[in-house]
Design a protein around this nucleic acid. Structure first.
Lengths: 215, 215
DNA sequence: CAGGTAATATGATGTAAATCATAAAAATGA
DNA sequence: TCATTTTTATGATTTACATCATATTACCTG
């Protein structure tokens, strides 16, 4: 998948020679599940685009628990945290699945932003969309554990279908709760016949009922 | 303050004739404290910039309680929710203080975004910054009430100094909690000598101690 | 200025979910 | 193959906070 990110929206309409240069300057790498792409507090030197897989943006809460701020899916940028000249990442990026990621050095990103109106416009649109998405997920933080878990499962099923290969620890971190609470929520869902699960695997049997719970 | 928003970052470098046209097409209006600038779920037809005062972005949680997603201060855009062609507002905007607001019709905003690279770049930068700010405040949602209240007070004091003219209901909504919890938190802070308060007025006596609490 | 409403205050009670504890099964790996 | 770690599971305890209740005070408005 050489230069796969060049087909993504902000890059698509760049001139050919710029694209060729980007192939040189940007790297694509594969991150195994649970590995860290970048670290909260570290110097932010690049903007990242996800080519495949999911990535969680995780921040340590003042109490020390890791809180998943947002889950970024395939074809989306991990920008925000670093795009426009901030010196440190506000959150860590952790691969929620195996993930292939393109790394655009900050200097290059700035250059593209300054040089190509279409690029700037595309980034403006993408980031405004992201703000809206964040607004939608933010309100969830004040909701019950059961609904947060249901929400995470449904969100995951959008990309992965009805069979999800995640542990309760992973689910709990995405939902901002504890492993035990995640297990208990799943047990309740099981008892209602909405899901089935075994070690590292959750099967959604009645997503529609889950969606009702979510409301 | 005619066309005051034209001095703000995205507009500053627009050509003179475009600025003149904007003076025609955009309106500036004053919103009294607690009044609604736009409503969650309603058709999003404009992008707003705050010229003075504070505005809260409020979303109804699934349980029905209003949750303040973000507090936007003077000179900042209320974009996100509407900037790039979404049909409904994801949250309501409520004036947290008396506020003066410029309304840019969506059609005009699109035109500026498509026509002026500097405008697109500026919006890209502003929205990426906003994403970072949201990431920073998001983690707070999972924190204790006392720390959330302390955080809100300190944030407010950035703009308004040590004497804040807000009721406990207002504070509680910004902190995502109840009036009673807000009052109790303030009582604890009072007992420690960190704040003084009377009806509709909170005076920060020892902001540094509050900041410690916040950590 | 009397009556109503909003803000402050605090006590009592309920509850969701974190924490603590323990255990068994499954995976890992030395 | 045996020890260690991870995952799932569930029960007991604790805790922060919401909820409910009630009272007082300040304020507005007819």
């Amino acid at each position: 998948m050489e230069g796969g990110f060049l087909h993504l929206d902000p890059f698509r309409s760049l001139p050919k020679e710029e694209k060729n240069r980007l192939c040189q300057d940007c790297s694509i790498s594969a991150f195994p599940k649970e590995s860290r792409i970048f670290e909260e507090g570290k110097k932010a030197d690049a903007v990242w685009f996800i080519l495949s897989g999911w990535v969680r943006l995780v921040k340590r809460s003042p109490e020390g628990r890791p809180v998943t701020l947002f889950v970024v899916t395939t074809r989306e940028p991990l920008f925000g945290v670093s795009a426009v000249g901030f010196d440190t990442y506000a959150a860590s990026a952790i691969a929620a699945t195996g993930a292939e990621v393109a790394k655009i050095p900050q200097r290059i990103f700035q250059h593209l932003l300054n040089t190509y109106p279409s690029f700037a416009k595309s980034i403006a649109v993408l980031s405004c969309k992201r703000i809206r998405e964040m607004e939608l997920t933010y309100a969830m933080a004040y909701d019950t554990v059961d609904r947060r878990i249901a929400h995470v499962l449904l969100q995951l099923s959008n990309d992965f279908g009805d069979t999800l290969f995640f542990t309760h620890r992973e689910i709990s971190e995405m939902a901002g709760t504890t492993v035990e609470s995640s297990i208990r929520a799943l047990s309740r869902f099981k008892r209602k016949g909405w899901v089935r699960s075994s070690r590292g695997k959750i099967v959604l049997l009645q997503p529609k009922e889950l969606a009702k719970e979510e409301r």
